[in-house]
Design a protein around this nucleic acid. Structure first.
Length: 519
DNA sequence: GTAGGGTTAG
């Protein structure tokens, strides 16, 4: 255009700047920025916002800020863009500062800020912000829309806050918002992550024929997470029949279904089809699934073969998968190697140190136990405390291991004591095999009995009427002892208990768990 | 001509 002697105008630049949207374009972006000055459009609000967006997309939030700071009276789009620029690189506090400084905010500003919190794991902050938006004095009189709701649903899902999520769903229906593919996917994902796979399926079935690959993938992963392997794979077949092309994420869900269902041959088959039939090159996540698939089934040497032959360096997730298989099948040598790799790749992984010292204890290598403990001390590594979340009456309650900070602590511990007494009467024996070896038998059992999920459970017994299903969300993997206890409680007290641990769902009912004791 | 939403192993 320039060679033809055509002069750009202020409308040319926003189009042009939009195309410079990743790091390799930073230099071109700077050159175009110079042209903006040259042609005198640096005071055009549309051009300014486009420049902020461009620098942010090219990975340079500080240049974005420079542009922003030059603007005398930034309009809403530039404020919102700069918030996004900071949020994108994880500078959540800076984003929030800017947000608080805004003279006014629209629904986009609020939605951006909520998304920012969700992106950095601040789920409760996102929900708090949503509540704030709805308060008339601070909320700028802004009403939420589909964009806002999608982010909020994502936060509910991550937290496992079913009551909150149901409320949001009701709000969406009441406000007449249209449930499009994106909002539908968000809803489905929320229900699946909150333990209600039935509701997720219901949303999915009501979504109509316009479902895209993300919508299908969300349902496939949801079913997998809940251990409904066959249904998940059937859905995958249906998706193909509907002419929707799967992507890499879809296959993570499919392989995950095979892992949780213990379907080794199926898993191998899908792994092959991925590339052969759909031209999707397996990524590290897929290799991780295969390692997991073999490991859980006790085929540790096959798992090793995958780890050694994969075309990329195994990451913490791959070593973690190998480790869980090795632990499950008591392969101490593999456990040791995997744990060493885990610590090497992430020296702050507290669980890895603890497990490694346990492995050495099991092998009787007491000097090694000491060495790992010292290393932990030296590096100042603290154990990540177990934490469980329950929602009672629409309020989220959080419990840590051995927590005594809840106002009703006394009652909770008394209730837990009653529950455990009844289990013991019925022959329950604590399963201490996963506990630290340093403690004596009695001490171990005591430590186990105050695991956060047990406290959360006791709290639910106090606060809900008999027969009410109990839903617990845990940050770590559920231990054998708690798993055994939950099974028995579901039978003895006739309660349905759903526990979401960091990997999957456990539906306890009538003394059995949906994971078939395979997790 | 500018700003915002959903799926991802253990």
């Amino acid at each position: 255009m320039r060679l033809h002697g055509v002069e750009p105008d202020n409308r040319t630049f926003p189009f042009l700047l939009q195309s410079l949207n990743s790091t390799p374009y930073l230099q071109s972006g700077k050159r175009i920025h110079a042209q903006v000055f040259l042609f005198g459009f640096d005071r055009d609000p549309f051009v300014q916002t486009s420049l902020i967006h461009m620098y942010s997309a090219c990975g340079n939030p500080m240049l974005a800020r420079q542009v922003f700071d030059e603007i005398a009276q930034p309009d809403l789009p530039s404020w919102n863009s700069i918030i996004n620029a900071f949020a994108k690189v994880g500078l959540i506090h800076v984003a929030r500062e800017v947000f608080d400084q805004m003279p006014q905010r629209n629904v986009i500003s609020w939605s951006c800020m909520m998304k920012a919190y969700v992106m950095c794991g601040g789920y409760k902050e996102a929900l708090g912000l949503f509540r704030e938006m709805q308060m008339s004095d601070r909320g700028d009189g802004v009403r939420p829309n589909e964009f806002t709701m999608s982010s909020i649903l994502s936060a509910c899902g991550r937290l496992g806050a079913l009551e909150h999520g149901k409320w949001v769903h009701a709000y969406i229906d009441k406000s007449g918002m249209k449930i499009d593919v994106v909002l539908g996917t968000a809803l489905m994902n929320m229900y699946a992550k909150c333990g209600s796979i039935e509701r997720a399926k219901c949303v999915f079935d009501n979504m109509g024929p316009s479902k895209d690959v993300m919508a299908w993938s969300a349902m496939i992963s949801g079913l997998a997470m809940h251990g409904h392997a066959t249904e998940s794979l059937e859905l995958f077949a249906e998706m193909i029949k509907c002419g929707v092309r799967p992507n890499a994420v879809t296959f993570v869900g499919v392989l995950c279904a095979c892992v949780h269902g213990g379907l080794i041959n199926e898993g191998k088959k899908y792994f092959r089809r991925m590339d052969e039939e759909f031209g999707i090159k397996p990524m590290i996540q897929h290799y991780g699934c295969i390692v997991d698939l073999y490991g859980r089934s006790g085929l540790i040497s096959d798992a090793w073969k995958v780890v050694i032959s994969m075309p990329m360096e195994p990451d913490v997730l791959v070593w973690g998968a190998l480790l869980s298989g090795a632990r499950m099948h008591r392969d101490v040598e593999t456990s040791e190697i995997a744990l060493k790799k885990l610590i090497q790749l992430d020296p702050t992984n507290s669980a890895a140190y603890v497990l490694l010292s346990n492995v050495y204890a099991k092998m009787g290598k007491w000097s090694e136990v000491r060495r790992v403990r010292d290393l932990m001390e030296e590096r100042g590594i603290k154990k990540v405390p177990g934490c469980s979340l329950v929602e009672v009456g629409g309020v989220l309650h959080e419990f840590f291991v051995g927590d005594d900070s809840h106002p009703e602590t006394r009652e909770i511990y008394m209730m837990l004591d009653e529950i455990m007494k009844r289990l013991k009467m019925k022959g329950f024996v604590g399963n201490t095999s996963e506990a630290l070896l340093q403690l004596d038998e009695e001490g171990k059992e005591l430590a186990l009995s105050f695991h956060s999920e047990k406290l959360a459970l006791a709290f639910c017994f106090l606060k809900t009427s008999p027969g009410t299903p109990i839903r617990i969300v845990k940050n770590l993997r559920i231990c054998c002892d708690c798993h055994d206890a939950m099974k028995m409680i579901s039978k003895e007290f006739d309660r349905e208990i759903v526990v979401r641990d960091c990997n999957r769902f456990h539906h306890f009912r009538e003394g059995l768990c949906s994971c078939k004791d395979y997790w």
